[in-house]
Design a protein around this nucleic acid. Structure first.
Lengths: 255, 255
DNA sequence: GTGCGAAGTAAACGCCGTTAACTCGGGAAT
DNA sequence: ATTCCCGAGTTAACGGCGTTTACTTCGCAC
């Protein structure tokens, strides 16, 4: 009657241990130290045993990247829930949370958000992990966008309440076609993730705004993590704050 | 009498060959394929010989990263010179050039602009390569900012001519201190690189603008290279164009 | 001509990912 | 209760890797 056999339990536990130790190695010593042999050593088993769980080292790294996104999502979700103020404050809190997470977890950020292969929240995953062949085909959703869901969950209410933009952003004509596509994708994502988002709130302007928010948030954060400012910037946090303020102003959400 | 001996000639030639083949491997097969043994194989020598030229594989990769920046700089410089229009058009051309270079050279972009160690245009280089101990101590400049020079060279004239910003960007008070620092660094950089930049043109507002330009340019480009848009964006080029336009408008440079 | 120092080599060490052939034990079918 | 399967884990091995050490070789300054 028990849905999960003893074997499955053990397997799941070992799998968790593998990823736990892999993550630890990543954090402590960097991506190239995440070695099948090192992981096995810490687990007290031998390296080839890991092939019962993952097809290859790369496969494991991809999974790690997903885990990282999920953990980050959970953390941001908590951050968000801890804010009692208006919706805009929540959005800001999430952005600040993303930044400070990235700065304190540079190696995890690099793996999940700056790896060319296109894992993380990208959309090129082959989705062929080692698992029971028939089980859990329940999430055919595009990809592991746990994280998008967090952002959507906090931006959604903001969209719903006050999009009385004093200055609608004047979307360039040749962008409208592409944006309606994204709009479709977004509404679908909101549905699958059960996010309260009145369809009329997801205007083209809103979609455009979200894209620009993400591009600038990501850009500023990556710039800081990789220290690629053209000259020394000791006041990066203040720069970030001014970017947030500017974003809020542009969205017509301030005052 | 000859300033360069035959030995030095050969050494320089071999060094160039090393980097040429390393670069080729990077482009063709990715960073982890840039192997001392592979390089040596293609050169027809043995791997330990490479240690006569570089302290380690990492050292070589750092040098590669610098080469990439320099090549990109040269390419952008050419792009810029090919534009005969006003200064703003040149700035746009350089930005577009940077983007299309990144998209066509993703692996080089990743190595030079998204490597956590902080090589490339960062400012943490230990600067201890294998070279004649006493020669060429002539560039104690902060770092290898060949690239910054290109951007400065194209932004400078723009600053010099028309900073009649209809809307000066209202720099947040707590940013001014840090920005004056950057301002100092920038004027110094202009001097060392011989860039025509009237000191009064490099206002705090101008420095602030340049930082924001770079952050957004870098962010958008990295986002595209790593395919980390939250949903499929097929119209990325148009998005990029609209970002440029927006930047121009914000700088008070448009109409 | 002699000899020094730099370029290159050969051999070895200890890592690595991955594969193949095996042991062994839990659990289902009989 | 016995049998048998199959999956977790092992051992051994392959080829490749970065790096070190000791060596040859040879250009060139004296």
């Amino acid at each position: 009657m028990n849905g999960v056999t003893r074997r499955e339990q053990l397997r799941a536990a070992t799998d968790l241990d593998i990823r736990r130790h892999a993550r630890e190695l990543l954090v402590r010593e960097g991506q190239e130290a995440v070695t099948l042999r090192a992981i096995a050593r810490e687990l007290g088993i031998t390296a080839p045993a890991l092939y019962r769980y993952y097809d290859s080292r790369e496969d494991l790294l991809n999974r790690l990247s997903e885990d990282i996104c999920d953990d980050l999502s959970a953390e941001l979700n908590e951050t968000m829930c801890g804010i009692e103020d208006d919706h805009l404050s929540k959005v800001f809190a999430v952005c600040r949370g993303f930044r400070s997470w990235a700065l304190t977890h540079p190696r995890e950020f690099t793996l999940a958000f700056a790896t060319p292969g296109g894992n993380g929240s990208g959309h090129t995953g082959a989705d062929a992990r080692k698992s029971d062949s028939t089980a859990t085909p329940e999430k055919p959703a595009t990809h592991s966008d746990e994280l998008s869901s967090v952002f959507l969950g906090v931006v959604g209410p903001l969209m719903a309440e006050g999009p009385d933009n004093p200055q609608p952003p004047r979307i360039p004509e040749e962008l409208r076609a592409g944006l309606t596509n994204s709009q479709r994708e977004l509404t679908a994502a909101c549905e699958t993730h059960g996010i309260e988002m009145p369809p009329e709130a997801l205007s083209l302007e809103a979609v455009y705004m979200m894209l620009r928010w993400w591009a600038r948030l990501y850009g500023q954060v990556a710039l800081e993590v990789f220290e690629k400012f053209p000259f020394d910037v000791s006041h990066a946090d203040r720069l970030f704050e001014s970017m947030l303020e500017e974003l809020g102003r542009e969205a017509g959400l301030y005052r």
